[in-house]
Amino acid sequence: MKHELVALVTGAANGIGKAVARKLASRKISLFLTDINKEQGANAAKEISQTYGVRAEFLCTDVSKETEIQRMVAESLSLTGRLDYAANCAGICETVATEERSITTDWFDKVYSINTRGLWLCQKYEAEQMLRQTPRPIDFSPRPEKHSVPPQRGAITNVISISGLVSLGLAAYTPSKHAATGITKNGAKFYGPSGIRVNASCPGWTVTPMTERHMGNIAVPGTPEYDRSSINEKIACRRFGLAEEQANLISFLLSDESSYMNGALVVNDGGYYNIDN
């Protein structure tokens, strides 16, 4: 009898987080969704449950607050008593990319509290729960011919950005994402020996409500501004990615099919970072 898998997804009300939740639900994984946006998050959980026939619960959570993260992880156990996967998608970004004079200390601290400190706390408490769990057998097909893959306790994927690998400006966001790469690598080192894998996806330019809000029609496919954008000229695929395309990668990094991946920073940017930088 197969174990009912449970995934925790932060930042799940929209964008990449919601796309990840939908993708995992399509794999019949039960979900515990969190976001600071209560109405959108609750609606996302209801929609996903009805569409995919899985259990999906929502908890309004501010990942800048340690006590709320602790409660989030504790309540995620209400489904099965386990936490098999965690996708940390919550994040914020400023709209000013080309200078840092206008970035205030308060804003820098707010970005840090969510993108860096919040990510670290999520990883820390998710891993603490996974450490308490009995390892689960790894299942994928075709099976290895001679040797079995050791069981694992869980998998965590942190959503960073190519801004964690290269500077695109963004005086608060870029440092927060560079720090997130170190959090991910430390997580892989700390928890890998106990059967918990920690990896990161590094999306490039992606169509989401956040990019549309910050960039306007430049981030909306089909508009004149998007079609003549200089950003697309720097991407080998000549387009922004979709949230669903990012979700496919994150789903893979959480799945048993990536059972030997740990500490990886996987770029998914249509051919931008590795070609022009």
Rank of each mutant, 00 (worst) to 15 (best):
D106W: 06
L119Y: 05
N262F: 06
P144A: 05
I92Y: 12
P142R: 09
L31M: 14
M210W: 07
G187D: 07
R55S: 12
Y272R: 12
I196Q: 07
G192R: 08
G41T: 01
E75T: 00
D227C: 10
I103K: 11
S176H: 13
G118I: 04
Y273P: 04
S64G: 04
K18C: 07
K146S: 06
A172C: 06
T51R: 12
V6W: 03
R228E: 13
M1S: 12
E66A: 14
L33W: 13
T61F: 05
K189S: 09
I196K: 05
V207M: 01
K65A: 02
K38D: 12
N115G: 10
I92N: 11
I231P: 02
D269M: 05
N158E: 10
A243E: 10
D227M: 15
R213Y: 10
N37K: 15
L5Y: 06
R153L: 09
V149A: 07
F140H: 08
K23W: 06
R82A: 14
Y191E: 03
C122V: 03
N232K: 14
D35P: 15
S161E: 11
L79A: 09
T80G: 02
S255V: 07
R101P: 08
R22D: 11
H178K: 01
S161P: 11
L168H: 02
T174I: 12
I218A: 08
G271K: 01
P150W: 05
V63S: 03
E68C: 02
R136T: 15
G17W: 12
F140A: 01
K185C: 14
G81T: 15
R71N: 11
T134Q: 04
D276V: 05
T174H: 06
N43K: 15
V20Y: 04
A42L: 12
G11C: 04
M261D: 04
I235V: 15
E212H: 01
V166L: 14
L168G: 11
L33N: 13
F32P: 05
Q133V: 01
K23F: 04
E233L: 13
R27K: 15
V6E: 09
R27N: 13
G53A: 11
S176T: 08
T181M: 05
F58H: 10
N158H: 15
A12F: 03
S201R: 05
T116Q: 15
K23E: 12
V207W: 09
E225S: 11
C93A: 10
L24R: 05
N274V: 14
S76N: 04
K234M: 15
D109I: 04
V267Q: 05
E257C: 07
L5S: 00
D269L: 02
T51F: 05
L8C: 12
S176R: 07
I36C: 00
P150H: 08
K234A: 14
L5F: 04
L168I: 07
N199R: 03
A243F: 02
S113Y: 10
A45V: 03
G154P: 07
A236S: 12
K2A: 09
T223K: 13
R55N: 09
S229K: 10
Y273W: 09
M210D: 07
S102Q: 11
M215V: 06
L31W: 13
N217D: 02
G118V: 05
D139C: 02
A264L: 09
I36H: 00
G15I: 04
T104M: 11
L254D: 00
A236E: 00
A243G: 02
S78I: 08
G164Q: 06
T116M: 09
A264K: 10
T223C: 04
I275P: 00
G195D: 06
K18N: 10
D276I: 13
